[in-house]
Design a protein around this nucleic acid. Structure first.
Lengths: 137, 137
DNA sequence: CTTGACCTTGAACTCAACTCTAAGGTTTAT
DNA sequence: ATAAACCTTAGAGTTGAGTTCAAGGTCAAG
């Protein structure tokens, strides 16, 4: 049985994060010591690893809650549910990427056109582009 | 002179947003009517357009504050400052895109490998991948 | 027996960019 | 004259994922 600090070090998260996940219903300590310390067993450690990995591929804590619900009772859930969550997250991620790519393109056009010199910003092409109705950037 | 609702409709933002921007120091109403209504002139409208355009290329409100500080006193600021802000935002944007692309790749691998069928999730490849230490996704 | 490293709690705070609420005053149209 | 459509304020709430704080209890080493 491991204390919270041990788990935290193993998985490179803070003890605060572990307590926060507990409040969010993601990971309960297996038992408490007589003094009230959280004690985690190997299966709790494994569950925390699952959470960390799910976060690493972009799932939110809310998504992870759903994944855990399924994982804990796999037999009564379908593969389809899991795939659906994954595809939904994939779609969201792609949408966000698209948005950021638009930002990226605009910003790089703005940056390219700007001399970036020490002279005053009176004729700065970036400011001009943001002022003009003709937003050709 | 325009009332807040007029500006809001013109620029497709809420009146709450305009009041919020005022609190943030981004856009002051030009004057107040006898009844205390905010009244904006064309230059305020132009400034709000600037803010909206800057947001549309990915600048945060904080960034925009800096841009406005420069814009309002161009003569005492250099082109370099503006370009620096832009490049910094570009770098941030690219980093975030990289991160999301990693998510995207992981998620699409997970989704591809999963049958997504109606059968139970007992052997779901997505769950298995997130459980296994061998995170080959 | 005390020092330092650990652990406990609840509650408040952070960031960003709004959004909403309550309780009221003003303007415009009919 | 009255209803609809505006406008005002201060302040609280939202989302997500934590972090920080205060005040205290516990455990191992020297």
């Amino acid at each position: 049985m491991y204390k919270i600090g041990h788990i935290a070090k193993q998985l490179n998260v803070s003890t605060d994060t572990l307590r926060y996940y507990e409040r969010q219903g993601l990971l309960q300590a297996s038992v408490r010591s007589p003094a009230g310390y959280r004690l985690y067993d190997d299966s709790a450690l494994e569950q925390m690893r699952f959470i960390v990995r799910a976060k690493a591929v972009g799932f939110s804590l809310r998504d992870i809650q759903e994944l855990l619900t399924i994982k804990i009772d796999k037999h009564n859930h379908s593969c389809e549910e899991v795939k659906s969550l994954t595809l939904q997250k994939l779609t969201q991620t792609r949408q966000r990427i698209e948005e950021l790519l638009k930002f990226e393109r605009s910003l790089s056009v703005l940056a390219e056109r700007c001399c970036g010199g020490e002279e005053s910003a009176d004729d700065c092409s970036i400011l001009t582009a943001l002022e003009d109705v003709d937003g050709s950037a």
